[in-house]
Design a protein around this nucleic acid. Structure first.
Length: 887
RNA sequence: GGGCGCUUAGCUCAGCGGGAGAGCGCUUCCCUGACACGGAAGAGGUCGCAGGUUCAAUCCCUGCAGUGCCCACCA
């Protein structure tokens, strides 16, 4: 049973019953590429022919593989892109990759280390060449994985953050900001990774609660003794003062005096500073200005020297003590022991849990370090970014996440942008012979002899922060920018709201305020959550609960993975995923395949002219009405980024309504109208109409199977460029809906009876309808057809299956035997429920306050319930009496 | 230490001021002429706890408990 695409001559051939995605997906994607469907055309926008819809892909790291988070992110972007493309918009989904400074450089350095080499063995230029070599050979594996997933990106526009054009963007904006005083160089305490030997920004530091030891040390002796506490004992070698709170009476007499620093012998002053919390510890703080941000500020206020005692690799240096040359952790123990030997350790050893910063790349404990670095003055930029959201120029979706954004942009520290790396955009600043500094733009010639360029490169996030416009050609005023900027929506996880989104907003609004570009980089930021394992736990390497979306794609197909992810995606909320659920989505694709197969075998066809309402049977009318509703709902939900609910609604309509009910009713219609060509044609046309629209609606979610089926069904060129469905405009026919609901109830009642009675399914038992009004004839007809179609109605003991409206019953033949006591028990249970319902409704209907205030529809509903319950009681009681009598 | 969120069926989650829902899992029956990757019929929930508002609370308010995330320079 090989899976294969459907035959080109509908209905002529028996199709396989299983759909094999692997056989279809890869060639289909190639076909789409060859047809150029994903290419965007600026001219169609600039000429006014089409509205633009644009998304820039959050650039994955060149070192990365497609993980399940990407799979979600990309699926949602692809749903939007495909939906808009079908809706007639000119869609640009722009792909690319990030050079990922530290990550990539570390990776290549590790490869060199295998041969015992370091980057310094090669020198800057050769090393960078090696990184490029690696990039060309093994980088960007993720691009192929994106194709496997089905991303409808415009590959002709793929960008890399180190491309020439993007480098021009970097240099141009750097110079503008430098000239505006927004970029400056200063000696500050920054986060330093001794493993990577570079500065880090705040967001590259992860905090975790680590166990440390809070050690109390006595400085000085006798009446001038003062006790301080620290978790980083070795930093005392760099102490240049002690601070106490100005109002702290315990230490008032010591302020202005000096005390000898143990082990080192230097005299250090005791100063008063309001930063000190007198309640914490002893109320006295050792001050190490070169290795602690608070201490640095205290030092500045009191003119204390900053003595650096750690090398770039975090070894003790220049203290003139025996500790020089030790690494910081060795020194921590050694210094403590030495102090203990002098009797200066006070109190017991106390374990102490406190937040410790780790390098997000290497995991090394980050060391605050006094260092000369480049910074971005973020206050004005962050305010502009925050204002853009506050003023609604960029909307954050879901809006509940906006406060997080504000919290962040309003409290951001200046951004350390220089990195002591080689892989990245080199800072375009030159230092002249007389201490002059010159920032050079991309078009300018660098200064000549005697000038030296800054050796550092920029933080990776600096260039990715320019992504929305650098990829479109800025600083050139390109047609692409004109047509597609600002981008329509940015789709990403809330976890990088701060890392990346905030930076793009800062740069984008900066250029917007300078009137270089429109005011913001995106109209909407649509945030989704994290993908977790099936128990809702965060995936992590150490727990081993991560999943590989590529393995699932191979096993179940890209459609199945996409549908599972889309179906679970609720705005801003995390979602779980499990292999079984992906399997469920694969079965959904099979179901679609088989439903289409069945419809085609029965000659489903798209009608040439619109279906006339008067030709339609109730089931036709009902399914077409439902289709209209589903079209409207799906369109609205997608417009609101409610991917999960849109997918859920389509799943429910396709399976529970179209397959379970309409297809079954269509079978009856087809067999009953063998000699009525007009009726037969109508049913085929309805099948074709519903499937056509359903496959279109599902295409953004499951592009491969829908494309396979739709092209076979309709002979059309491709769903990628097919028009998005719109509701027919017919008004809803509530009578048909009620008819179908009744048929469902009737059928279910009978089936339940058969099941309860354990009747042999093969056994056909006659049934007849009883009732008083004209609807009986309609039901009689339906029932006859259902029976003909093999839906056998069981019979025994005059059991009725009552319909909702109480006017029609199916009365089953009494000739068979039935388990009377069991049936009575079941009926009595139902009777009790009905009686309780009457109690409830009576209570409400008798409640004057309720009747006075409840809205009319609510009262109507309750009256209906009451009426139904009353009818149930009557019917069930009568039946029970009959059964008892016959027993 | 701040801020935010969550607590609904065994698991993961929708829902929401007026009759408790889905997927997966589970039980029973059925290889009926699209599909056994299927069909049918079921079981299973004091909607975290305690108060309050209301004619009516899973839904709104308060408190408590549990849990998760983000931010954070208290040594």
């Amino acid at each position: 049973m090989n899976a294969s695409p459907l035959p080109s001559n509908p209905g002529e051939q028996v199709l396989p019953t299983h759909y094999d995605p692997a056989a279809v997906e890869v060639p289909l994607y190639q076909r789409w590429l060859a047809a150029g469907y994903f290419k965007a055309d600026e001219q169609k926008v600039l000429s006014g022919e089409r509205k633009p819809f644009s998304i820039v892909l959050p650039p994955p790291n060149v070192t990365g593989d497609l993980h399940v988070g990407h799979a979600l992110d990309h699926t949602l972007m692809d749903v939007l892109s495909r939906w808009h493309r079908m809706s007639g918009d000119e869609v640009l989904w722009l792909p690319g990759m990030d050079h990922a400074g530290i990550a990539t450089q570390n990776l290549v350095e590790k490869k060199l280390a295998v041969d015992g080499k370091t980057r310094h063995d090669f020198g800057r230029e050769l090393f960078i060449e090696k990184v490029w070599d690696w990039k060309h050979e093994s980088g960007g594996a993720i691009l192929g994985q994106m194709k496997r997933l089905g991303d409808s990106v415009d590959w002709s526009r793929e960008r890399f953050t180190l491309d020439d054009g993007l480098s021009d963007s970097v240099q141009t904006i750097f110079k503008k900001m430098f000239d505006d005083g927004l970029i400056y160089r200063a000696e500050r305490i920054i986060n330093w990774c001794p493993g990577c030997v570079t500065a880090l920004s705040d967001i590259e530091v992860d905090h975790s609660d680590d166990e440390g030891e809070l050690v109390s040390i006595r400085y000085g002796d006798g009446s001038s003794a003062i006790v301080v506490a620290t978790t980083r004992v070795e930093t005392m070698l760099g102490d240049t003062g002690i601070a106490v709170h100005p109002d702290d009476e315990r230490y008032a007499h010591l302020i202005g005096t000096t005390v000898e620093l143990p082990l080192v012998g230097r005299q250090i002053p005791i100063v008063a500073d309001a930063h000190v919390d007198p309640e914490f510890g002893t109320g006295a703080v050792k001050v190490t200005p070169a290795h602690d941000p608070n201490d640095f500020e205290i030092g500045q206020r009191h003119g204390l020297k900053a003595i650096t005692i750690l090398s770039e690799e975090a070894d003790i240096v220049s203290t003139g003590t025996a500790f020089d040359g030790m690494n910081r952790f060795e020194a921590r123990s050694a210094v403590k022991e030495a102090l203990r030997g002098q009797g200066r350790i006070v109190g017991e050893k106390k374990p102490y849990l406190h937040a410790v910063g780790h390098c997000s790349r290497s995991g090394d404990v980050v060391e605050p370090r006094l260092s000369l670095q480049w910074f971005v003055n973020v206050a004005p930029l962050a305010k502009a970014a925050g204002d853009a959201v506050r003023e609604g120029r960029t909307k954050i979706h879901p809006p509940e996440l906006a406060p997080r954004f504000f919290d962040w942009v309003d409290n951001m520290h200046d951004w350390t942008i220089s990195r002591q790396l080689w892989w990245g955009h080199r800072i375009p600043v030159y230092y002249g012979p007389n201490g002059e500094i010159r920032c050079v733009g991309p078009a300018e010639t660098p200064p000549g002899d005697g000038w030296v360029q800054d050796p550092d490169v920029l933080d990776t996030w600096f260039s990715s922060g320019l992504w929305p416009f650098s990829t479109m050609g800025w600083p050139e005023q390109s047609d692409t920018l004109e047509a597609f900027y600002p981008t329509s929506v940015l789709v990403t996880g809330y976890d990088i709201l701060f890392f990346w989104v905030a930076r793009m907003m800062m740069f984008g609004t900066y250029l917007g305020d300078k009137a270089e570009l429109p005011s913001v980089p995106f109209e909407t930021v649509a945030l989704h959550g994290l993908v977790r394992d099936q128990f809702g736990k965060k995936m992590s390497k150490s727990k081993g609960n991560g999943v590989d979306p590529l393995a699932w794609i191979e096993k179940f197909g890209a459609d199945a993975v996409r549908f599972t992810l889309a179906r679970g995606a609720n705005p801003g909320a995390d979602q779980a995923i499990a292999e079984d659920w992906v399997g469920g989505s694969a079965r959904f694709c099979t179901k679609l395949f088989n439903a289409t197969r069945f419809a085609m075998m029965n000659g489903a066809v798209l009608p040439e002219s619109p279906l006339a309402a008067e030709d339609l049977a109730p089931a036709d009318r009902w399914v077409l009405d439902r289709l209209d509703q589903v079209i409207a709902e799906t369109t609205n939900l997608l417009g609101d980024f409610q991917f999960g609910k849109a997918a859920e609604g389509l799943y429910h309509f396709a399976w529970d309504e179209f397959c379970d009910w309409y297809l079954e009713l269509a079978k009856i219609q087809i067999s009953a109208s063998a000699d009525d060509p007009a009726r037969l044609a109508t049913t085929k046309a309805v099948l074709g109409t519903v499937l056509d629209a359903l496959l279109k609606l599902l295409h953004p979610f499951v592009p491969f199977v829908t494309e396979t089926l739709w092209t076979a069904l309709t002979g059309g060129e491709s769903l990628v460029i097919a028009p998005w469905p719109v509701p027919s405009g017919r008004s809803t026919d509530s009578a048909s809906a009620a008819w179908v609901a009744d048929v469902e109830t009737l059928t279910t009642e009978v089936r339940r009876f058969r099941s309860d009675q354990g009747l042999d399914p093969k056994r056909k038992v006659p049934a007849r309808l009883v009732g008083g009004d004209e609807t009986v004839s309609a039901f009689a007809a339906a029932l006859t057809r259902l029976t003909e179609a093999g839906e056998q109605f069981a019979a025994t003991a005059s059991i009725e299956a009552a319909l909702v409206r109480g006017s029609v019953h199916v009365e089953l033949d009494t000739s068979s035997t039935v388990d009377v006591p069991a049936e009575i028990a079941r009926l009595e249970k139902d009777l009790a429920v009905a009686k309780k319902e009457i109690e409830d409704t009576d209570k409400k209907l008798g409640n004057e306050s309720f009747m006075g205030r409840a809205p009319a529809p609510v009262v109507d509903k309750i009256r209906t319930r009451a009426a139904k319950a009353a009818a149930d009681v009557e019917r069930l009681s009568a039946r029970i009496r009959d059964l008892r009598g016959s027993a």
